[in-house]
Amino acid sequence: MAAAAAAGAGPEMVRGQVFDVGPRYTNLSYIGEGAYGMVCSAYDNVNKVRVAIKKISPFEHQTYCQRTLREIKILLRFRHENIIGINDIIRAPTIEQMKDVYIVQDLMETDLYKLLKTQHLSNDHICYFLYQILRGLKYIHSANVLHRDLKPSNLLLNTTCDLKICDFGLARVADPDHDHTGFLTEYVATRWYRAPEIMLNSKGYTKSIDIWSVGCILAEMLSNRPIFPGKHYLDQLNHILGILGSPSQEDLNCIINLKARNYLLSLPHKNKVPWNRLFPNADSKALDLLDKMLTFNPHKRIEVEQALAHPYLEQYYDPSDEPIAEAPFKFDMELDDLPKEKLKELIFEETARFQPGYRS
């Protein structure tokens, strides 16, 4: 834990890192770190609560700039109880001085990944967590956004079992017609939660990839272990087919990539493993919904509104309290091709509203 900075004593240090967030945020305490930044909790002297502050230093890398800009653009436009918001952003007053960006968010005690390492969940908890994931996802999908990296560590939890989806750095506007060349190379989302079509096709992607990830998360809540822990690309596919069985001819016809289709045709026939054999203690309604989410063919996979209306979630289902976005989200430009200098300018502009004396 960093010592509390005395008023006016300059930035606090946390594990050798400068955290320049005073005077409003003090009493910093280390939480963890990701690929390009550290997260601390801090005391907000204005709202009198502890908050989470993520320090991001992305400006050396085009990919990190892209992810940072995506996350900020999306989260500043989203407003939903099951999606983490941005409360404040701290950065230098000029673009030349801006080396880091500090993002202030609600402090959540833990995440689903940490929880599943230590606790076996009751059916009631599984049901409530799944409902909140789908409630947040309904809003995301209504904005025409794909999260693309749903996994237990991106689901934040607090002691009252509130759940918030975080990390929109890989999110995209849904565009089933656009052929994202190089899709697989830039697709760094965790393999275990990846839909089979991501490994088999490169053309376009749809909201059904997020539903697949939610199915993987439900299976993990039922058993405290990942359902498809593939060691590499082909191993991942083999794990999936080992449980779902061989795809039907109709399902194979959806695979545009001939090499991928021929690979699947070359494999020995596998039978589907019954879900109640894998999860003998699970609620039968939970397994019915799991089956509809972990469907090989993305066109037959359940959609988020149908999933919310499934009998497993009937005690929570309330369409009048499951809000959607006001308007579909649009990125003005494809960020993939922009140089990091341009992305830095866009991050600077996007964060201006939090600067003292800002006038829109």
Rank of each mutant, 00 (worst) to 15 (best):
L335Y: 08
Q66P: 03
T295V: 11
Q132R: 04
H239L: 01
H141W: 12
A9E: 12
A352G: 12
A9N: 15
E303A: 11
T68F: 11
P58I: 14
N238H: 01
V39I: 05
G357H: 13
A195W: 04
N281L: 11
I211L: 04
P11C: 03
R261T: 05
E71L: 06
I90S: 15
L146H: 08
D111H: 08
Q249D: 14
D337T: 11
K292C: 10
Y233G: 03
L308R: 14
V21T: 08
L75M: 00
P58L: 08
E250P: 12
K164N: 00
K270C: 11
K272M: 07
S153W: 03
Q315L: 01
V101I: 08
H269P: 10
P196D: 02
V101L: 00
I90T: 12
K342G: 12
V304M: 09
P176K: 05
I86Y: 11
Y30W: 15
C65H: 11
D321T: 14
D332V: 01
L343W: 14
E341N: 14
T118N: 14
V101S: 05
K270D: 10
S122F: 11
Q315H: 03
V273C: 07
A9D: 08
N87T: 15
R24T: 15
F59A: 14
F59L: 00
A260C: 14
D318L: 10
R301H: 02
M199I: 00
I126T: 10
R67M: 00
D210R: 02
K259F: 03
Q306I: 15
I56H: 02
P280D: 11
T295I: 10
D124E: 01
K270H: 13
N47C: 09
S266L: 14
L264K: 10
N45A: 13
E350Q: 13
D149S: 09
L112K: 09
S57I: 11
M98T: 12
H147W: 03
L112S: 08
I83N: 05
D235W: 06
V145E: 00
Y25W: 11
V104G: 08
M98Y: 10
E220W: 03
E349K: 02
I140P: 05
N27L: 06
L289E: 05
Y205R: 01
G85C: 00
Q132T: 07
I56L: 08
W212K: 03
K259P: 05
M293I: 00
T185G: 03
D210S: 05
L156K: 03
N253E: 04
L258V: 10
A35K: 02
N87Q: 14
K340E: 01
T181Q: 07
Y316C: 04
I217N: 00
L134R: 04
S223P: 01
G22Y: 06
L294Q: 01
N281Q: 08
E350C: 15
C127A: 08
A195L: 05
Q97F: 11
P274H: 02
H61Y: 07
M199Q: 12
G245R: 02
V273P: 15
K344C: 14
H310F: 12
E314M: 15
A143G: 11
D100I: 15
I256S: 08
L115I: 14
H299D: 08
I86A: 15
L218N: 03
P93L: 07
L146A: 05
D88W: 15
L287N: 09
K231P: 09
Y64K: 11
P58K: 15
I209A: 04
L335M: 03
Y64E: 10
Q119N: 15
N123P: 12
E186C: 07
A6P: 12
M221F: 11
K259C: 05
H310R: 04
D283L: 13
A260M: 12
F228M: 11
Q97H: 00
L258E: 09
D321E: 05
P23Q: 15
I74S: 07
